[in-house]
Structure formats: C-alpha cells, structure tokens
Design a protein around this nucleic acid. Structure first.
Lengths: 241, 241
DNA sequence: CGGCAAATTGAGCATTGTCAATGTCTGTGG
DNA sequence: CCACAGACATTGACAATGCTCAATTTGCCG
C-alpha cells in the first residue's frame, strides 16, 4: 500500500535540506490531502488559461511545461522529474499561464488549492521551503533564457544534457553512467528553440566527437568535464547547496 | 523627509491587491528596517557568486538582471521598474546566480536578510504576497524563454516593447502616449538574444511600418492593437488580475 | 508483414551575425 | 561659444548558423 510517506518522500527530503522543519511541520506536510493518479504519456495536467483548483507533485515519471505562440510554435520552458512540485502556481495564482504535460507515464499527486493555502498560512517554515522551490525554478528559467538567447546550438543542447544529468543525479535517479533521456528530438528542439532536424545533426556531431554516446534515448557521458566545457555548464544556478 | 510610507508605497499597493493584509501585516512591512541609497547608472547591486546578506527594493529608477556565458556573451533576463522587489532571492537563497545592475540612476532600499526572514516567518500573509511576486517573476521568465526561443526578431522586440508598456502603465508610470525606454540598443540586443546591429534594423523597420514612433529613446505607440498583433502579445502571463 | 512515429540525411535558402565605416548627439573644457 | 571626445546609432557588404522541404531509414508494435 502506498502511504503519504512514499508519496512525499522525495519532496520531504528536499525540503528538510533547506529549513529545519519541526514535528508539526512534517506532520502538516504528510497530512496534506491528495489524490494519487496514474497518467499516460503526453496527457495535459494543466492547461493555459484555466483557473487552477489544485497543485500537483510528480511521484514518478517525467513532465514538462510549455507555451505556444500565436503562430503555433511551441516552447518547452522546463522539464520536471520525480519529487518536483510542479504547479505551485496553481496554489497562489488565479490563472495558468502555461501548459503542463506528461512526458512519460507518471504518478501524480493532486493537492487541493485550499489545502495548500491553509498549509502555507499556518506553517511558515514549510511555506518558506516551498517558496525556495519557486525561487530555484526561477533561477533555472533564467539560465534557460540565457541558454536559448546566447548559446549556439551545440552548447545549448549540451547544456540541457548536463542540467538533466546533474538533476537526476541529485535526486538519486541516475545509473552509474549516463541516463535515459525521456524526450524525442522534436521535444529537445522545442526546449532549445531549434528545429528537430538541427537537433539531430548536433546530437550526431556530439556523438561523433565522443562527447556523448547514444543508444536509442540513452545518453552516455564518457567525459563529463569535456561535455561540461562544451556546454559552458556551471551548476550554481541549480542551488543544490 | 522620506518616510517608510513613501518607500514602500508602490510595493504595498501591489501586495494589498493580492491578499487581505491586516493591520499587523501592514505594520510589519512598514516597520522593515532599510537603508535608502541613491545609485548611479550602470552600477552593480548584486553580483553573481556572492553570498547575499540583503534584499532590495527599487524605489525609483530602472534596473536589470543579467548573466554572462563562459564565452562572455551577456543575456539580460529581466528588467525592473519602481516598486519591484528585486532580489527576494537574496533573502532565501545562499548564493546569487546572476547580476543585478542599475539601468538609470536609482533609489534603492536595502533590507537585511535577517529582517526579511523574520518577517516571512512571523507574517504568513505578507510572505504569501511576496511569494506571489516570485511566482509572477517566474511566469515572466517563462515568457522570455519563449520570446527568445520561438519568436523572430521583429516579434521579439515588439513583445519586449509591449511588456514594458503594459507594466509601466499598471505601475502608473506612463505618459498619455508611449514611454521613455531606458535602454540602449545594445541592452535591447542582450535582452532579446540578438545583435545591436540587428536590433537597430528591426527598430527602423517597425518605425517605417508605423508600428512605433521613435524620438531618441522615447517610444510612441500609435496603434497598440497593431503592435500587439505583431508581437503576439497577451498579458495573461503578467498576472495583473 | 504492415503501419506509424521517430530519426536521419541531403540540398538549397534566409534570417541574423560579423566587420567595419560613418553619422549623431551630449557634455566638457578651453 | 566652439572644438573635441566618447557613447550610441545607423548603414553597407558579406558570411554563416540554423531553417525549410522533402525523401529515406530505422525501430516498434500489433
């Protein structure tokens, strides 16, 4: 049987590393009402323009946020991994400004907006830890603005690969060497502001130069330092502490 | 003489529109210790890599945040106007992941990190209102990722002009028609991921087509609807409510 | 084996960048 | 009041990164 402990474990671990939560804080978090649901790949969890009535947490699987221009071009603005509180926006903002969609099959815990607000108003330390989550999200967005605005295609894609590797590692979700990238080349393109065709060429190039090894969607990184250099990757912005 | 009311006026107005603050909340905000300082243009207020010991609020003037790639390319990730709490990061994160620099001469109110944390832990409603600020910042970053990633140069610059116009208007800082853009073309380039040369050509093009009128740095917008269309601008992401 | 999504490749093109020169404005010192 | 310096804006010619269009291949699943 799945208990709140299983559901909120990754999140709790993250939050405890940020603030000294007391018993009451921990209880309040574990006592949050939630509905657990398994969601198929490519399903919308949040839609732009909706009035949200809940927040959600990824228990397992991967998801991403994206926006679409008037002309229909899609931009992926972030990718999320298990333990990520996506849509804290849903608790505090009145309208969704972007879409959230599953990348793989996911288990999602939905938490009512009212319960979130109650928790926030009664447990300042929990609230602070969550707010820090929002701040780190913001930091990652800033890095993405720079990635898309000022790096060429090769560094841009390498950077994405580095970020993903590092985040998975911290969450304890990485195999000894490399990882399974849960995105198609089209999605990579939408995340980097490139075209799928060009993403393909760059990936081929990175592999040719021995910077990555590809087997299907598995990305192997034989020389982290080399890839890091090509990407211009520095993990400060992830605030791993 | 300048009182806390003058300093925090714009901020208070913004926050009150978001949460029902009671007397104690208002007092706590107005009671925040701060140091007011006038800062010349182009001065660094926050530097990447520093351990912050304060937050800051723009009382008057304009500022921007930026990051620099390893190769030395600069990306401006946001522009701030009076009443903006820049660097809430400074209260809750342990290291700065970007620079903040003044655009014009500014009056900045510096608030010690400890005072901010104290306020946050004791006044949940104020805390929530500030958190909303962080969420909205995040929303704007997302829009910028899309701007830089998926719009062509013309829409990209128009979009920036629209965003600025709208935010100034809401803050009550706009003249009847158009506004003074406090950025050089080089800075516009760094904000849009373009080169100064290309920014110049695009601005000339927008003016030629009657979408904007330029006199020095003053931007006139003769037909808002037309510019909005070119930009693909929709203000939902600003969460003006 | 057939069907479909995703990946790969090629050829030609265009948006935007690079380099370099020139023009304009503003403030300052003589 | 004028000359000059310096920052910013503007323009031209050419180059290149990344895009478009279109075809082909690969892998997966029923």
């Amino acid at each position: 049987m799945t208990t709140p402990h299983d559901i909120f474990r990754l999140m709790l671990r993250k939050f405890e590393s940020r603030a000294s939560l007391d018993e009451s804080d921990r209880d309040a978090m574990l006592g949050l009402p939630y509905r657990l649901q398994t969601v198929e790949p490519a399903v919308y969890i949040v839609r732009e323009g909706e009035r949200p009535d809940r927040s959600c947490l990824i228990v397992s699987g991967f998801a991403f946020r994206h926006k679409v221009t008037v002309e229909g071009a899609r931009q992926i603005v972030s990718v999320h991994i298990p333990g990520d509180f996506i849509d804290l926006d849903g608790a505090l903002l009145n309208i969704s400004d972007h879409n959230v969609q599953t990348l793989t099959r996911c288990e999602i815990a939905y938490i009512p907006r009212s319960a979130m607000r109650e928790l926030i108003l009664t447990h300042p330390k929990v609230s602070m830890a969550m707010w820090v989550d929002t701040l780190i999200d913001g930091s990652i967005f800033r890095e993405w603005v720079m990635n898309v605005g000022r790096r060429d295609a090769r560094s841009r894609i390498s950077h994405l690969l580095c970020e993903f590797a590092r985040r998975l590692e911290v969450a304890g979700l990485i195999e000894e060497y490399g990882y399974e990238l849960p995105m198609t080349q089209e999605q990579l393109a939408d995340a980097t502001g490139l075209t799928p065709v060009h993403v393909n060429r760059v990936l081929m190039g990175l592999a040719r130069d021995g910077l990555i090894e590809r087997h299907k969607r598995h990305i192997g990184i034989p020389d982290w330092e080399a890839l890091r250099r090509v990407a211009g990757f520095s993990e400060v912005y992830l605030h791993l502490d």
